[in-house]
């Protein structure tokens, strides 16, 4: 395979899990709730998916379980910040620790277990196309699904009536309430949905990509997802691009090494974060249009 083909394919493989998580976080933050505990939701999804797959033999049952588990864990966050008005950043960090602890605790019997993985389904004919074929049409179902999902979420946020409601809540719960909406319900739904997608992201790692469960399987990808949401300025399609960029950075350093080119993994691993900061700076210069105003409260509270 050519270098470009290899890196592009790798970018999609490595970027998919983060893409799910950041798409979910886009929705949550569009409702004015930031969830720093995405990492915990990803782990919950990864483990729940793995356990259910191991017990039932069906990775599809595992996907459902991952969706539910990620959503349930995020609902804890929603309860704390929406119903109890708790500090969002603190609650999110606590959620991360909870996910880490719970999955390590309940995941022990499943380390070294073996599951029927969610396998790749090359699309007949299309996967044979030179260059593009293997890049786009030789993946697992979760990877295929994430791209249409990004498009659908973009339509949902910017073109649908529901999206208007979501964004209205994210701008100001008071005005949304005055307009006859139920801000709390919408925020609950958005946060839970965000966690559920993070759960799918985790499942993509545990069921398809690696077919493995180990403690801390996601290795910080949840934090990358949060960073990407901001990089994407709360736009699902940009989040998709950001996740591919992250996946590309990972794939690039490995593909270069496989070709005997020495790269410092440390410097390459910095790039997604530095890029995000640069994008933030560029956007800030143009005025923070895309910033859900509701989030300002979080960032202007005293912590």
């Amino acid at each position: 395979m050519s270098f470009v083909t290899s890196v592009s394919t790798g970018a999609i493989r490595a970027g998919t899990s983060v893409m799910y998580a950041s798409l979910g976080e886009v929705i949550a933050q569009r409702a004015g709730i930031i969830n720093l505990g995405v990492e915990g939701c990803m782990l919950a999804g990864a483990l729940a998916g793995y356990i259910v797959t191991a017990e039932t033999g069906s990775p599809y049952a595992g996907i459902v379980a991952a969706f539910v588990a990620g959503g349930l864990l995020a609902t804890v966050h929603a309860f704390l910040v929406v119903t109890r008005g708790a500090n969002q950043l603190a609650s999110g960090l606590a959620l991360m620790f909870l996910g880490l602890g719970l999955t390590a605790f309940f995941g022990r019997p499943y380390v070294n277990d073996q599951i029927t993985p969610l396998r790749d389904y090359p699309v007949p004919m299309l996967s044979e196309i030179p260059y593009f074929g293997p890049v786009l049409f030789d993946h697992d179902p979760l990877t295929y699904a994430v791209f249409p999902l990004a498009g659908a979420l973009w339509w949902f946020v910017f073109r649908s009536r529901w999206g208007v409601m979501l964004r209205a809540v994210g701008e100001s719960t008071e005005s949304a309430f005055a307009a006859g909406l139920h801000p709390a319900r919408i925020q609950y739904a958005a946060v839970a949905f965000g966690g559920a997608l993070a759960g799918l992201g985790g499942a993509q790692i545990s069921l398809a990509y690696t077919a493995t469960w180990v403690e801390n399987l996601t290795n910080g990808r949840g934090f990358i997802a949060v960073a990407l949401v901001i990089f994407a300025m709360w736009n699902p399609l940009r989040a998709m691009a950001g996740a591919l960029l992250f996946g590309g950075a990972v794939a690039l350093q490995l593909q270069l090494q496989a070709r005997g080119v020495g790269v410092s993994p440390f410097l390459l691993d910095m790039t997604p974060y530095l890029l995000t900061i640069i994008v933030l700076l560029a956007w800030a210069q143009r005025g923070q249009d895309a910033f859900p105003a509701g989030l300002n409260k979080v960032f202007r509270g005293t912590g």
Binding site: S91, A94, V298
Partner: peptide
């Protein structure tokens, strides 16, 4: 990893127990 669970639970309990009107926290 068990201790992570306890730490998170205590934080949650405190977060939930402290009703904050603004929804933002202090």
């Amino acid at each position: 990893s068990t201790v992570n669970i306890l730490m998170a639970l205590i934080l949650f309990a405190v977060l939930a127990g402290r009703k904050n009107r603004t929804g933002v926290g202090a």
